[in-house]
Design a protein around this nucleic acid. Structure first.
Lengths: 216, 216
DNA sequence: GTCAACGTTCTTGCATACAAGATTTATCAT
DNA sequence: ATGATAAATCTTGTATGCAAGAACGTTGAC
């Protein structure tokens, strides 16, 4: 059994939201969730409270919990912040990376190359995630890494949509190459700039996102 | 009556932690809190769950909740991230501020001037907060503003300690002047740089913080 | 036929109850 | 006297129960 039921429920519901199993705007009925997971309402409520605090669900008094629907504009704002934090992580990584960090980054980068050239966008998604986490770790800022992972997770569904856009995987991998180069060269400002551009969704990429969102 | 009990408890306990009423490392007993606030354990637990999700308390399975104690190093990391986000807010504000934003920023700045020249560090603390919030608002990024406010709140006790350092109020206000100038001139990069420096606690300021923390 | 008012039903919010793990204390052996 | 083991106590984790507010349907009037 898991550590405790609440934690498990929290993860299950969170995954359900992220994997679009619970669509934005959907009502999260307490008894329904309780029976579905074979527990009572109490732990369900506590899990929902946590998701509320994180900002994934909204709890309207006496009217239940619903999955928050961040519109395109807010998603853009979230990517904007994410780009900034990733830029910071990159600049810190360029200054602080150890031999172990270099190994991890290069290994993740190599895996990205494999899945990219294989044209496997799902595999690339996971390797890409490892690549970015390697940079967070190399920043040697625990708090920053946590913030980045949390935001990364929240943006997961939209990130995934983006990779479906034609040529995005190849472009992404090419950007990774330049980023690795800048970090390992210890060029903090270059790493920051490249990562910021890599993550932010300016211009066409934003239009693509909106279009993809609308077609769901 | 209040909206709901859980929200009230969450705020009360959160304020207690921030105001150092519940010291870092202190154990938060459920029945104790319940009797203290005149409610049952259930809403107390739900409030603690939310604080756990935010990162203010740690819940060890079967062993209760304790107030998280971020050591000096982690506090430094949090200021580092805060500096980055404030820098982003400043750069966006420089590009996007409206007439109303200008008015609000200048008003807050004028209030800072009053409390600064009066040597009232407590009043300055509040005016400073308003000043920064005015910049968040001028960034016209709701998500960024929320993130900034949340971090600002978590760093509140340490910020306050900093203002006690000799001359910090005067220095802070001088920095505000340059920041206002950069934003209103529409100089995004300058606003970003100045705000980043204004918020981050490099060199001596970090030593001061550690020393002050140790002396509590 | 449509709209509104009322009553029923359903859902949430909080309290209480009960079970299981953790902690503390007491007793016994060395 | 000190250490360990076992029992008592306390605390957390989950279930259930009850009350109050919201959603929904029905009935009646116009």
């Amino acid at each position: 059994m898991s550590e405790n039921v609440v934690q498990r429920l929290r993860d299950e519901i969170e995954n359900g939201i992220i994997s679009n199993d619970f669509a934005p705007g959907a009502r999260l009925d307490e008894v329904q969730l309780a029976t579905r997971f074979g527990v009572s309402r109490t732990p369900v409520r506590e899990a929902l409270m946590q998701l509320n605090a994180i900002g994934l669900v909204e709890i309207r008094p006496r009217r239940g919990a619903v999955v928050i629907d961040p519109g395109p504009h807010r998603i853009f704002e979230m990517f904007e912040v994410m780009a900034e934090l990733e830029g910071l992580a990159g600049s810190l990584a360029a200054r602080r990376f150890t031999d172990a960090d270099r190994t991890t980054i290069l290994a993740a980068h190599a895996d990205c190359e494999r899945s990219s050239s294989a044209g496997n966008s799902d595999a690339y998604y996971y390797d890409n995630e490892r690549f970015h986490k390697a940079i967070y770790a190399a920043s040697h800022s625990g708090f920053l890494a946590e913030q980045c992972v949390a935001l990364h997770r929240r943006l997961q569904p939209y990130r995934r949509l983006q990779l479906r856009v034609r040529n995005r995987v190849a472009t992404s991998f090419a950007e990774h190459g330049a980023i690795v180069e800048a970090i390992l060269a210890g060029d903090a400002e270059q790493a920051r700039t490249l990562l910021r551009q890599h993550v932010s969704i300016q211009g066409e990429r934003f239009s693509d996102l909106v279009a993809t969102l609308a077609s769901r």
